[in-house]
Design a protein around this nucleic acid. Structure first.
Lengths: 341, 341
DNA sequence: GTTAGCACTCTTTTTAGGTGAGTGCTAACG
DNA sequence: CGTTAGCACTCACCTAAAAAGAGTGCTAAC
């Protein structure tokens, strides 16, 4: 594809992203100084259509980019500006002001929606690869103990667990002692089959053993689940492509389903860096007319979650990419900051 | 208002709720066997309009209920069926299956949206009147301790708190000892000014004192905040009155604002029982064309939160009232069940 | 290779007329 | 006197036709 064709494709794409109206040769000639007449542009556009980069909603309308066109635009033509140091600073500061992990995540999704003006999604850090810093049972009453868990990058959770029989202070101490000795430093995901054997060796009292395991399993069940945060859903409704209520409802319904959103976002988890998914590239039907711009974030170099924005295929990819990237990086460096815990 | 007028008003309201179309005299005569001719009904409807119970979108259309009409319908005419024992049982069972308080609340909002087909809101229990069952600091490392709090109706939370100086095991023990002795059984809301004095008497070490207070205040800050859960937002979009995207967007935007929703729901907290708020009865502009059906739920006779559904003023009040009531009651009895903790 | 000119296509907007649901009023009826 | 049939009238809504407008593709000239 020669230089002029690229310029024209870029101009059409940008203009369509801005106006949501099919773009005609006249508009290109007037608005983007290419130094050639509309007729020439018409010829070039006919070629671009033949090659599959542009399409025409109907005979007498202007052109709009095809998915292939968007793909080329994203891969080759666009030049997302990176956020300025100031902007990054501001994002970082806002996130840093949060007290607990959940608030950090929630604030980042809020920021993402605010800055991008697109519906935004953040998958909370998967802590299954985090390490246990503290795991402990605290007696409450006869049949209840509190299981407290602190996982290494600054995440704590507690849960009341019912015991099947009253445990004496001694027994609790033994269990805690074992937890302390064996589980401190362990990776959360590994607490399972592998450790059961060890536990069996350690505690000779069969009943107590099963009780301890029971508590642990019950307690960990809720703790491990991944959470998805969404913000700015109403931005979708501002897009002219969702003027049709039925479409909007369909999409919002999917977004209400945490699992679906999660699986879509997790496509990003493999790659690091920015991933742009355009229209039907997304396997999930219902996202066919949408694009996603996602990025992963890390804790100490390990990918733990992903964030992204969702919009129509006619999305401002430049803007989306720069903001998603900026926030993902802020999040990574904040979560990896050793001064946090 | 005589019997026949009531019957007509009721018929108009029900029909409009079902069809969302202005109701004509002919329809009433045909569909609701009142044994009189359309002309008679026309006369009655003219009277009802004069009295402000009905209105006409335009001259040659049928009638629709005014807000006053809905109000009369809700207060006098409607007869919400109470849920069957089976249905209640099912709701109760579903809620009971949840492990932690947050899940119970989330499940009830999900159920409410599912059953009512309206956008549903639940304000999580305000635990500020709950009593402290356990409050304890667990050492993590030099500058971090874990504050663990268990509040009486089965709610626990933990938080990592930074200390301004390393605390020795002894100091921690002293703080914990004090917490144990003074705060166990205290009402969460009362932990504040009143206790500070006592704490001052108790711990002579000035620095340690302020440190303990500091930890407590920092730790409690996040714990006390109220949470709002929303589900079924897309049901709003199914209502013909929100066919107009702008209206829908406006309302969804408000629903995204936790504080606004919270304040609206909390109008219910004063009264006990069902509260129906119709259109402009709601002080918050933006809810002017909506109705809310809300109810409070209790723990051991004490109102702790509220649940409700939101829809157009043309809402199925019968259905909404019965379901909101049913779920509120289920929630109350579950949370008050002494077998839970 | 580029461009002006022009006929052609197809959507969108405008206009106009027709349809139908529903009303209010009047007069007749029991 | 309440009830009802009859009827003229209103007004949203639908449909069809006409007009406008944006943009194209093609051809011929530069």
């Amino acid at each position: 594809m020669d230089e002029r064709k690229r310029k024209i494709l870029k101009a059409v794409t940008r203009d369509y992203i801005d106006t949501a109206e099919p773009v005609g040769s006249r508009t290109i000639a007037r608005r983007y100084g290419l130094g050639v007449s509309p007729a020439t542009i018409r010829n070039e556009m006919a070629d671009l259509e033949e090659d599959g980069y542009l399409e025409q909603p109907h005979t007498s309308a202007g052109r709009i980019p095809s998915e292939k066109g968007y793909r080329f635009y994203v891969d080759v033509l666009m030049t997302p500006r990176t956020l300025s140091r100031q902007e990054l600073q501001k994002i970082y500061a806002t996130l840093q002001a949060q007290q607990v992990l959940e608030d950090i995540v929630q604030e980042s999704v809020r920021l993402l929606a605010l800055l991008s003006q697109y519906t935004s999604i953040v998958v909370a850090p998967n802590l299954s690869r985090g390490t246990v810093r503290c795991l402990q049972l605290i007696p409450l009453d006869e049949f209840n103990v509190l299981l407290v868990l602190v996982v290494d990058p600054g995440f704590s959770q507690s849960r009341i667990v019912e015991t099947s029989r009253p445990l004496t202070a001694q027994e609790l101490a033994r269990i805690n002692h074992f937890f302390e000795r064996r589980l401190a430093g362990a990776v959360l995901a590994d607490i399972g089959a592998s450790l059961i054997e060890e536990l069996r060796d350690e505690i000779d009292d069969e009943a107590l053993l099963s009780e301890a395991l029971n508590l642990l399993i019950k307690g960990l069940r809720n703790i491990k689940k991944e959470q998805v945060f969404i913000d700015g859903t109403t931005h979708l409704l501002s897009q002219p492509e969702f003027k049709n209520i039925e479409k909007a409802k369909g999409l919002l319904n999917i977004l209400d389903d945490e699992r679906a959103v999660w699986s879509v976002l997790n496509r990003a988890l493999g790659r690091s860096g920015i991933l742009v998914t355009i229209g039907s590239e997304n396997p999930h039907e219902g996202f066919q007319e949408c694009s996603l711009v996602t990025a992963t974030y890390e804790i100490n170099g390990q990918v733990v979650g992903s964030i992204g924005v969702i919009g129509p295929t006619r999305m401002d990819y430049d803007k989306a990419v720069s903001i998603v990237e900026g926030i993902a990086n802020s999040l990574s460096s904040l979560l990896s900051d050793p001064r946090r815990h």
